[in-house]
Simulated scan of single mutants.
Amino acid sequence: MTAIVRTDDVLGGDPRIEGTRIGVLHVFDLVIAGTSTPEDAADQLGIGLGDVYGALSYYYDHADEMARIRARHESLEDELAERTVQPPTAVE
């Protein structure tokens, strides 16, 4: 059985597959929101097929938590985009 763990100093405490730095959200995004089959995702990530299904199961069993994590990620992305300085354009 796949263990999903949280560690404050790994992936910011987001749930991940034990023994890896592969987050539940990453697996979901590859398989459900993306174009990978579970088999392809397992191969790409170097994990077992059971780990993929374990992560997906965790995602669906903790949908509210995962929605909060996704919202936090999107907020951080927005904040970083606002703080990014665009390089000056060349003047001809």
Rank of each mutant, 00 (worst) to 15 (best):
M1T: 14
M1I: 11
T2F: 00
V5S: 10
R6E: 14
D9Q: 11
D9C: 07
V10S: 15
V10T: 15
L11C: 14
G12Q: 03
G13K: 01
G13L: 06
G13T: 08
P15I: 01
I17T: 00
I17L: 08
E18A: 14
G19K: 06
T20W: 04
R21A: 14
R21M: 04
I22P: 01
I22V: 07
G23L: 04
G23H: 03
G23C: 00
H26E: 12
V27Y: 04
F28R: 05
L30F: 00
L30R: 00
L30S: 00
I32N: 03
I32Q: 08
I32C: 05
I32F: 01
A33I: 00
S36Y: 12
P38L: 01
P38I: 01
P38E: 06
E39T: 10
D40R: 11
A41H: 03
A42I: 09
D43S: 07
D43K: 06
D43E: 04
D43N: 05
Q44F: 05
L45E: 09
L45F: 10
L45Y: 08
I47T: 07
I47S: 05
G50P: 02
Y53M: 14
L56T: 01
L56A: 02
S57K: 11
S57N: 10
Y58P: 08
Y58N: 03
Y59E: 06
Y59S: 05
Y60V: 08
D61I: 06
H62V: 05
A63W: 00
D64S: 08
D64I: 06
D64E: 11
D64P: 07
A67H: 08
A67D: 13
A67G: 13
I69K: 04
R70N: 08
R70S: 14
R72K: 14
H73Y: 04
S75E: 11
S75F: 07
S75A: 15
L76Q: 14
L76I: 11
E77L: 06
E77C: 04
E77Y: 05
D78A: 11
D78Q: 10
L80S: 09
L80Y: 04
L80C: 04
A81Y: 03
A81Q: 13
A81L: 09
E82G: 01
R83W: 04
R83V: 00
T84L: 15
T84R: 15
V85K: 13
Q86L: 13
P87S: 13
P87K: 14
P88R: 15
T89Y: 08
T89V: 14
T89A: 12
T89K: 15
T89Q: 13
T89D: 09
T89W: 09
A90D: 15
V91T: 13
V91F: 15
E92F: 10
E92W: 10
